[in-house]
Design a protein around this nucleic acid. Structure first.
Lengths: 248, 248
DNA sequence: CCAAAAGTGTTGGCATTACACCCATGC
DNA sequence: GCATGGGTGTAATGCCAACACTTTTGG
């Protein structure tokens, strides 16, 4: 029953989910964009997403869309709700409220074209926000807020490890922070902090020998979700690719 | 046009906003609850809220409901979106997705009964979460998450000042932290931190003489929104009214 | 009316910790 | 060259004490 009765004392609206899916590839933070296969904004890049189904939770819809667009089952990703966007004119066809999700994961298998998308591909975030590319709907705003959420989440939580495929080295984890924040971190201090944080990392005891350099110890994600003390991005000299004005 | 056409390829749902409105009264963190005046959950306490209107933004709906329930215009409050709740069975009548908002403000004029609420009153948060009171719908979950959001927001932002009517003293601000976190803070350290944080407080140069004790300097809110360095609630001995299990 | 006590805000002084910066070493 | 580990000086913080200003109490 889409409409249980003809008359209502309140409006009904369509609801979609949109996904900001981040990964770290080639020492860059990249976001998954699709090319829209239909109006409105046909041919324009957009965040993956779609309408929720009857009796479907928002989280379930996000996981479903994630799977449809990337082929990845979300059980190994970090998925978190960003917020709802409700501008009445954000979709020119009708009133559509969208709930945006933030998904973080390790370098994923190449995206395949989705159902109503011509193509899906990884795009460096700075490229997607570069003004040259005009995202569909209000997706530029959503992407910007998703980026800021990801950056601040790295400070207070352990989600950075979600970007790393297990097992991983501390240097790989550090590179995640450097790429997302756009600045260099001192390897020594970084190691001390993350190994000191309780239950953040579980050492495997094994090592991985790179092409050059000393073998690095391997770790897995620990059970901790909150990072205390936090890992702040305050000082340090910024080689930032984005100005701090992105903080809003 | 509620329905632009009879047939759709996607479901439409009703959307509401619900408000977690906090204030500090009598050295307690209190939340505004209404008593429902209609089914379902008639007579049960609930968070204030209601359906969004056509072409109305969620933020606007939240401000409108806030005004309807408290008579306060929200321009002087801190209002922030929590998240959307989408369990298909959270409302027994039909599918309703709600977007929860968190509102923080100084002790407000006594709430007046709203349109579809029998009464509205301030209730200490620990009372409302005490199991004895069963909130309507999933409002207990929303309230719990709102509390946790407020607690963590105090660490990294300057919203604590939103609880204080200007001008205010540093001791009043400290009491906000103590009440929300449920622990005692060292007056000396607290003063050092908040006065050291850039643009957090603007001294007025004036003083207020309490009933007993030394006159305290008065301050107004500064332009800063983010608090750096953050004010962590980590250590310190807990005289906590809630166990840390409330962190989720 | 004055002196002492009590309560609150404010300031200052260490001891400890955390951190940024730098250097040394192993593979 | 890169990962790892250690050391040092500076800043932040926790803890504790003293001081300032006011009202209340009691002689």
């Amino acid at each position: 029953m889409i409409h249980s009765s003809g008359k209502r004392d309140h409006a009904q609206v369509a609801v979609t989910v949109d996904l900001v899916i981040f990964t770290v590839r080639d020492d860059q933070l990249q976001v998954l964009l699709i090319e829209r296969g239909q109006e409105p904004f046909e041919g324009r890049p957009a965040l993956p997403g779609g309408y929720i189904r009857e009796r479907e939770r928002l989280d379930a819809a996000a996981l479903r869309e994630l799977h449809e667009e990337t082929g990845v089952d979300g059980s190994r990703l970090h998925l978190e709700q960003l917020r709802a966007y409700s501008d009445p004119d954000r979709d020119p066809r009708e009133r559509v409220i969208t709930v945006a999700y933030l998904a973080l994961g390790p370098d994923m298998p190449l995206a395949r074209a989705g159902t109503d998308a011509r193509a899906a591909e990884w795009v460096p975030v700075m490229t997607a926000l570069n003004g040259d590319i005009e995202l569909a709907f209000d997706h530029a705003v959503i992407l910007r807020e998703g980026l800021e959420r990801a950056r601040s989440q790295l400070e207070y939580t352990t989600v950075a490890a979600a970007f790393c495929a297990e097992p991983f080295t501390i240097a790989e984890l550090r590179r995640v922070y450097e790429v997302v924040w756009g600045l260099k971190l001192d390897p020594s201090n970084f190691r001390r902090k993350v190994t000191g944080a309780h239950d953040f990392l579980r050492p495997t005891g094994e090592h991985r020998t790179p092409e050059i350099g000393r073998p690095a110890a391997l770790y897995r994600r620990g059970p901790a979700r909150l990072l205390s003390p936090p890992l702040l991005r305050s000082s340090d000299v910024a080689g930032s690719q984005f100005s701090t004005a992105a903080l809003r």
